[in-house]
């Protein structure tokens, strides 16, 4: 069915990442809540890493105005984001286990939606939806890792975007201040920067690094 076997794709990933690291990545189970500028970019990164289990969650369809920063093509306009993204990720690696939930996350369904994942990526755009998810996840699943984002609008400095560990299992990426206003819109580079911060923190967690930076990186400062 596919031009490459599962063993060939795994071997290619092992060549790039090493067998030891790929073993951990392949067993990763990550849920991504929101498949816009953040979530679609995070999903691409995790699929390329060969993260074995991905749960894609979004209620919305791809709109033409999404193409300024989100990982979709013109041919996806009108499709559900869950379907459009799954279709693309399977072209990177058809052997990933990708679960999709085309639903709006609310206070009622959070407990069942996120029961399976070890790591949850918050990638919504609405600040109230972000806060609701974060509060409910931290209350219901204190043992799960939560990687959130806040503040990536505009074209301000790349270096203002950072990753911060707020609590044991709660990480926040972004500049924490820049929101959408009349003069400040969301653009591809900074949305992708913030998504890359999230994706890299998730990678670190999958590989057993819980700190934002490792000890030798800290001592270099």
């Amino acid at each position: 069915m596919y031009p490459f076997s599962e063993a060939e794709i795994l071997s290619a990933l092992q060549k790039r990442h090493t067998i030891a690291l790929q073993e951990k990545l392949s067993h990763g189970h990550v849920a991504i809540a929101g498949l816009g500028g953040l979530g679609s970019n995070v999903a691409f990164a995790l699929a390329r890493l060969g993260v074995g289990f991905l749960h894609l969650i979004d209620f919305d369809r791809v709109d033409l105005t999404n193409l300024n920063r989100q990982q979709y093509f013109l041919s996806h306009v009108g499709m559900y984001k869950t379907d459009a993204l799954q279709q693309q990720l399977l072209q990177i690696n058809p052997y990933l286990h990708i679960q999709t939930s085309c639903v709006r996350v609310d206070a009622q369904n959070i407990k069942t939606l996120f029961a399976q994942a070890d790591i949850i990526c918050e990638a919504f755009d609405d600040p109230e939806a972000k806060a609701l998810l974060v509060n409910r996840i931290l209350e219901n699943f204190p043992e799960k890792k939560l990687v959130c984002a806040s503040g990536m609008a505009g074209y301000g400095s790349s270096n203002a975007i950072h990753t911060r560990r707020i609590a044991k299992n709660f990480y926040l990426c972004g500049d924490e201040t820049t929101e959408i206003t009349e003069n400040q819109c969301l653009m591809a580079p900074r949305a992708a920067l913030c998504a890359a911060h999230q994706a890299n923190m998730i990678t670190r967690l999958l590989l057993g690094e819980e700190d934002v930076s490792s000890e030798n990186e800290k001592s270099e400062k």
Partner: peptide, 9 residues
């Protein structure tokens, strides 16, 4: 620690 979320994603 009070975390305030701003819009955008």
């Amino acid at each position: 620690e009070i975390v305030s979320f701003v819009g955008g994603g």
